[in-house]
C-alpha cells in the first residue's frame, strides 16, 4: 500500500518535463481558472435567468429579468430610505448578536465549568435548544407588536444556544496536563485565563459567533417578514403587496450581499484573532 503512492506520482511527474510549455500553461490556468470560470458561471446564470424570464412558463411581470432587476438594485443605493431599511435590519442583527453572545458566553462558561451543572441542565437544554426560534414569532408578536423587541427576542433565542454550546465545549476542552501545570506554576487567576482558558476557548467561541452571525441575519429578516418589524424583510413583504416583483428581487439580492458581507467580516475577524491557531496557520480548514 505504502509504495503505490510514490510510483504513481513519479509516473505522473516524469511525463511533465517533456512538454514544458503545456505544464506552464496548466499552471497559469490553475491560477486564473477560478476567476475566469467563476465570472463565466455567474454570467451564464444571469443569461439563463434572462431567457427563462422571457420564454419561460411564468409571466415576465412575476419574474422580471436581470436587465430590469439589476438597475433597480443599483438604483436603490441612491435612496436614503433604502439605507435606513438596511440600517434597521443590521442594527437589530447587531444588538441581537451582541446580547446572545454575552448571554451565551456567560451561561456556557458557568455550566461548562462544573460537571454537576452540565449533567443537571442537560435535559432542559436538549429540550429548549431544538425549538426553532421562528416558532416564537407569534409569542414575540403578541408581547411586543411590530417593534424591535419582537425581532430581538427571536434573534437572541436562536443565537444564544449556538454560542452557549460552543462556550461550553470550549471550557470543557481544557487540557488536563496544562491545567495541572498552571496550578504547579502557581499562576494567578488572570494568568490562568490569559494563558490557558482563552487559547482553548477562543477557537470554539469564534466558530460559535460566526455561525450565530449568519443565523441572526436569517432570523432578523424572517421576523421582519412575518411580524412586520422595520427592515429588509418588511420591505420585501411591502413590495409583494404593492405588486412590485422587481423591487422584491432587488431586495433579495441585497440580503444575499449582506449575508456574504457578514460571513466575510467574521472570517476576517476569526483569522485575525486566531492567527496563532493551527487551523488558520495551515489554512486547511477553509
Amino acid at each position: 500500500m505504502e509504495t503505490q503512492t510514490p510510483i504513481l506520482s513519479s509516473v505522473a511527474v516524469s511525463t511533465l518535463p517533456t512538454r514544458g510549455h503545456t505544464a506552464r500553461r496548466a499552471a497559469q490556468w490553475t491560477a486564473a481558472g477560478p476567476y475566469v470560470l467563476g465570472v463565466a458561471g455567474i454570467l451564464a446564470a444571469l443569461i439563463a435567468w434572462e431567457l427563462f424570464s422571457a420564454f419561460g412558463p411564468v409571466s415576465q411581470h412575476h419574474l422580471p429579468p436581470p436587465s430590469v432587476v439589476i438597475p433597480t438594485f443599483l438604483n436603490n443605493f441612491t435612496f436614503t430610505q433604502f439605507w435606513l431599511t438596511v440600517g434597521q435590519t443590521m442594527w437589530a442583527w447587531f444588538l441581537g448578536l451582541t446580547l446572545a453572545t454575552f448571554g451565551g458566553l456567560a451561561v456556557g462558561l458557568l455550566i461548562g465549568s462544573s460537571s454537576l451543572l452540565r449533567t443537571g441542565t442537560h435535559t432542559t437544554v436538549e429540550f429548549l435548544r431544538p425549538i426553532p426560534a421562528v416558532g416564537l414569532i407569534p409569542l414575540a408578536a403578541l408581547l411586543f407588536g411590530p417593534r424591535i423587541g419582537a425581532e430581538l427576542l427571536i434573534v437572541v433565542y436562536g443565537c444564544f444556544w449556538i454560542v452557549m454550546i460552543q462556550a461550553m465545549y470550549g471550557i470543557t476542552d481544557i487540557d488536563k496536563v496544562a491545567d495541572d501545570t498552571v496550578r504547579t506554576l502557581r499562576m494567578t487567576w488572570l494568568q490562568r485565563v490569559r494563558h490557558l482558558v482563552l487559547p482553548t476557548l477562543l477557537p470554539y467561541l469564534m466558530t460559535g459567533i460566526r455561525l450565530a452571525a449568519t443565523v441572526a441575519l436569517i432570523l432578523a429578516i424572517s421576523s421582519e417578514l412575518i411580524v412586520g418589524t422595520p427592515g429588509i424583510g418588511r420591505a420585501v413583504a411591502q413590495a409583494q403587496l404593492n405588486d412590485n416583483p422587481a423591487a422584491m428581487i432587488a431586495l433579495i439580492l441585497t440580503s444575499g450581499l449582506l449575508g456574504i458581507l457578514v460571513n466575510l467580516i467574521f472570517r476576517f475577524i476569526e483569522r485575525k484573532v486566531l492567527f496563532w491557531h493551527s487551523s488558520v496557520r495551515s489554512e486547511v480548514a477553509a
Partner: peptide, 11 residues
C-alpha cells in the same frame, strides 16, 4: 447560499 432562504418565500 448567502441569501437568507426565508426571504424567498414571497417571490
Amino acid at each position: 447560499r448567502a441569501v437568507p432562504s426565508t426571504i424567498l418565500i414571497p417571490v
